[in-house]
């Protein structure tokens, strides 16, 4: 366990090197971006001096690493605000959306996969697999726009954009609005917050749902053929118990891997969904930083996403050990 945590250190350092190098390899002058094209050479040079951009890049890197070790992600060039503080609300927004999307994707995807495998070659199986195929191949932006058109504009069932009704803002503590509104005891707000989550969660969760459904199905089909499933049947257990207890636990390990990977990719790759649903998440925060060559923000954003990815993988590894007694981490 401790060994696994220690492995994180070189991985994180490697990550900073990669992130740092990529960003610096991209052409474009941040000083010019900040000051505008009409700025004089002197003022640009002065700004580079001030930001340390004129130093050799190895030195820039170590300065950055030193600050990072102290929890200082630097300041945004655009807003002059400390990034660690600025990114928090965005991070929370992304986290909230990712969690609901993955809950939806996991619940629907796994059940669809399980029943598909259980009733293999039935019409249910065929329909689910066709839906799953459509799900993985559907462009997210199109799905998002269709949802908005049908459920917001035509039917007026759900709000189309944002996290919350702007006229009645949530009192922020954690920036996770679901939790904030529960803390404040505002159940009406909780309801509104949840309604805002529905459409973006479905848009974002559809691909993971389809992937999870397919993975669950194939994993279940494999397990259903095993001897211990036959034993479970020979004991007189009902098909439901055989499937949901004996088979599912065994089939869930590869599914868990997929869930972990999908969660990781949602954390960073939600720019499209966030844009369509005006969701103030990390994806858009980084996207804006990229457009304005806000190096420190880009670096920090990517670093944080990568860090979360690693943490999720660590959690998945720990869950393996919890499910399968044959896996042990010393």
């Amino acid at each position: 366990m401790i060994k696994r945590l220690l492995i994180l250190v070189p991985v994180l350092i490697g990550m900073t090197i990669i992130v740092f190098s990529i960003i610096h390899a991209i052409p474009g002058d941040p000083a010019e971006t900040i000051l505008g094209q009409k700025a004089t050479e002197q003022s640009k040079a002065a700004l580079r001096e001030q930001l340390g951009l004129n130093k050799p890049w190895l030195q820039q890197y170590f300065t950055y690493l030193g600050d990072l070790a102290q929890g200082d992600l630097g300041k945004s060039i655009r807003t002059k605000e400390p990034i660690a503080k600025e990114i928090m609300p965005y991070l929370a927004a992304t986290l909230e959306l990712t969690i609901t999307s993955m809950l939806f994707a996991t619940f629907v995807g796994m059940n669809a996969g399980i029943i598909s495998a259980w009733k293999q070659n039935s019409w249910f199986d065929y329909i689910i697999m066709v839906i799953a195929l459509i799900g993985v191949s559907m462009p997210i932006f199109w799905l998002g726009l269709m949802e908005q058109w049908i459920f917001s504009i035509k039917l007026h069932w759900l709000p189309s954009i944002g996290r919350m009704d702007q006229r009645d803002p949530v009192e922020s503590v954690t920036n996770l609005y679901v939790i904030d509104s529960i803390i404040a005891g505002r159940w009406d707000q909780l309801w509104t917050v949840m309604k805002h989550l529905v459409l973006p969660s479905i848009a974002l969760g559809t691909i993971p749902m389809a992937v999870i459904a397919r993975m669950t199905r194939s994993s279940m089909l494999e397990v259903m053929k095993s001897d211990y499933v036959r034993t479970a049947k020979a004991k007189g257990l009902s098909q439901f118990f055989v499937v949901y207890k004996h088979a599912l636990k065994n089939a869930s390990i590869p599914v868990l891997t997929v869930i972990g990977l999908q969660t990781g990719s949602l954390l960073g790759g939600a720019v499209l969904t966030e844009t369509i649903f005006a969701w103030p998440g990390v994806g858009r925060y980084i996207f804006e930083a990229i457009s304005s060559r806000d190096y420190p923000v880009i670096q920090s954003g990517i670093l944080i996403i990568a860090f979360m990815f690693i943490v999720i993988n660590l959690i998945v590894d720990l869950l393996y050990a919890l499910i399968d007694p044959r896996i042990q981490y010393k």
């Binding site: 001897d227 036959r230 034993t231 636990k249 399968d324």
Partner: peptide, 16 residues
């Protein structure tokens, strides 16, 4: 009526 199988290695569920 109960049954025992040929393969004791794989006939028990490894996760219980």
């Amino acid at each position: 009526i109960s049954m025992i199988f040929q393969e004791p290695m794989t006939s028990l569920n490894p996760l219980f």
